[in-house]
Design a protein around this nucleic acid. Sequence first.
DNA 1: CGGTAATCGAGACGGTACGTCATGTCTTACA
DNA 2: TGTAAGACATGACGTACCGTCTCGATTACCG
Lengths: 216, 216, 216, 216
Amino acid sequence: MTVPEPGSPLDTTGLAVPASAQAARGRPRSEKARKAILKATAALLLERGLAAVSMDAVALRAGVSKATIYRWWPTKEAVALDALYTRWEEAARHPSDTGSLRGDLLELLRPWAGIVRTAPYARVIAALLTRAQTDQVFGAEYRRRIVQPRRDQAREVFLRAVERGEVAADLNLEVALDLIYGPLYHRLLQGHAPLDDAFVTDVVDMVLAGIRLQAG
Amino acid sequence: MTVPEPGSPLDTTGLAVPASAQAARGRPRSEKARKAILKATAALLLERGLAAVSMDAVALRAGVSKATIYRWWPTKEAVALDALYTRWEEAARHPSDTGSLRGDLLELLRPWAGIVRTAPYARVIAALLTRAQTDQVFGAEYRRRIVQPRRDQAREVFLRAVERGEVAADLNLEVALDLIYGPLYHRLLQGHAPLDDAFVTDVVDMVLAGIRLQAG
Amino acid sequence: MTVPEPGSPLDTTGLAVPASAQAARGRPRSEKARKAILKATAALLLERGLAAVSMDAVALRAGVSKATIYRWWPTKEAVALDALYTRWEEAARHPSDTGSLRGDLLELLRPWAGIVRTAPYARVIAALLTRAQTDQVFGAEYRRRIVQPRRDQAREVFLRAVERGEVAADLNLEVALDLIYGPLYHRLLQGHAPLDDAFVTDVVDMVLAGIRLQAG
Amino acid sequence: MTVPEPGSPLDTTGLAVPASAQAARGRPRSEKARKAILKATAALLLERGLAAVSMDAVALRAGVSKATIYRWWPTKEAVALDALYTRWEEAARHPSDTGSLRGDLLELLRPWAGIVRTAPYARVIAALLTRAQTDQVFGAEYRRRIVQPRRDQAREVFLRAVERGEVAADLNLEVALDLIYGPLYHRLLQGHAPLDDAFVTDVVDMVLAGIRLQAG
DNA sequence: CGGTAATCGAGACGGTACGTCATGTCTTACA
DNA sequence: TGTAAGACATGACGTACCGTCTCGATTACCG
């Protein structure tokens, strides 16, 4: 399989028709239509959740035919994933270096928590998650687009802390990442308690210090 | 949270006590139909996920009319929640006392992880979760039935540890619970890495000890 | 196979779900919907031909759901056939006895020609005919409903003429019927010349007398 | 009727002379493509009827682009008509002179009946007929190509009979033609009875002799 | 013991969305 | 200019569920 050019019009979700390197024959894909579809989807997604994102509704709102959507995305979840990714990538930033692991983590996690709790992203993520459980291909793409980028940022922060000597070099990094993001996603999705800045701080502090009474 | 009156329109789950003391006029509810519905739903749920649980399919498989289902449950998610709860309650146990917080947690979490990773429960939970994002009433019921029972078990374990003097009395218990269950649900739902016993152990150990290098 | 009761709500085209003699369980068929569908179809048919009779259009115009149409008719041609039949049956009359074969035939054929040439029935018949070429079941039904009734009327007229001694008793009746209706349908469908009363008269006279010069 | 200029937009059939005397600018029309289109259409037509002749299917099968088809034919019916005409013209013969009207007619009609009843031409003709009801331009072309040629052959036969003195000079020729071809088309299209040689003979004999008992 | 009343099965109903297909138009690059 | 390739808007297709409804048949109680 050829790897799609990053940023090329064919690099939509990886679920789309794979790009070929040869000369582009025939009428080229309409960039206008692509953008209209993603914009309409994002709007529907935030207004009323994935349940409101029907192919018909997107087509109507984007002024585009259903066939055009199906040509490039296999399911409405794929469109939604693409729309969500596009929105989030614009807001992505490089994790800043505050000089301490605690500071870096708070700097990274608080804005993220702020975003996902203000807009109704929880129901979007939950819906995508549901699809990911059943559809292997979609699941991989979901993780690549939604889960991994943030995880990579946090990984960078942890590695910086190792370099500083703040944490042990043999730290189980993957588990540590789950320890950080797990509780945040838990509150986001289960909704049993608020995902506020106080909680983010508590999680970071408790993960760093541990629960058990220090010996002695 | 108020407990819905059995038989009341707010009793969305159908788990009401079959016979109440008040005057029962007319033909009584068919217990046979109730069980057939839950059984058929559970089967469909595990075989093919919530997507396969349509009211028509359940009615057909249970040998019951659609009207009967709608009379007792408002949505298919409510039926599914009921079916899942019924299955899980049978397997519920009182958390045993191993003498240490670490031992109690492992004793509690490992069997749970074993269950949810063997059968395809992840997609069921994800689907219920999705509905919970949008439907407030359902969300409350979902948490009461699925999330809280396990959480209560773990809370009991933590309180025992406080009594033992193993952890500080001012431990932020709710955050601690999220620190334990968050990572487990994270792997269960996001699927980026396995939810095996090694991971459960790592989480417990890391939460207890903390990440940061001990001073010195 | 049970024979549907003539005039019963299940006797639609014979293409519909066959009627059973047992007790009617469940909600009975909506007579209102059935009539609305046939009325809407007939209107579309005469206004713009079978091409305009889409299931969507009929459903919209009749204020009925598509599923209801599909429940009772397999194709739009079946609905159209039913609608056309319903319209025509109302206008059906018993062929009157004028005392002569020529008179009877003219009495029978002229009004028919008048009807089919004034309203745009030709395109409807052509379209049904086309479907009948490919679909055996539909073809049989088409002949039973559209072709046979008129043919039976003419057959009656011919038999009366045999009794009168006007034509030979060993007349090949089926060929004679084709000799009468064939030319009329030919002009109706091929459209190379008008189907007017003069033509009807010419056909009848020529069929009765023959083309060849009488010997001698 | 005016004959469309080859290559003009009114030349809906594509049977135009490939090269005209006037200046041919740009790339000349591909004769290869034209033949491939007609061949593919004829194949689809006989295999599965006009319903299977979609522009996409023809383009795919002929190895041609849809635009090329649309450039030379306005509708799929026009292509089908062209394909059918091409096939039939090859088999066209001059009506032979057997010495009698009866013989000439049988000589002309029997082979025709044989052809149309063996291959599934009926559904093709019915479909073209249907289009002809709605589309005036197509209707005229259909008659010119399909109906008139055979009619002209029969007319020639009748005129020969007039010269022979076999039939009256004031015979209404057009009605006579309908009397011959009408019944044949009737059986071909309505399908209520077979279009075999016996029927052809019966029709000819009955038309020549008439139905009515000869006086005396 | 007959009347009252809620439940049950069956299944038709008006809707909405699905994913596919064909039509006829267009845009591009190549011949 | 013609052609192959193929994207596009449009709109119908036939299917599947949704949640509601209308039946007749059951099955309790209560008077």
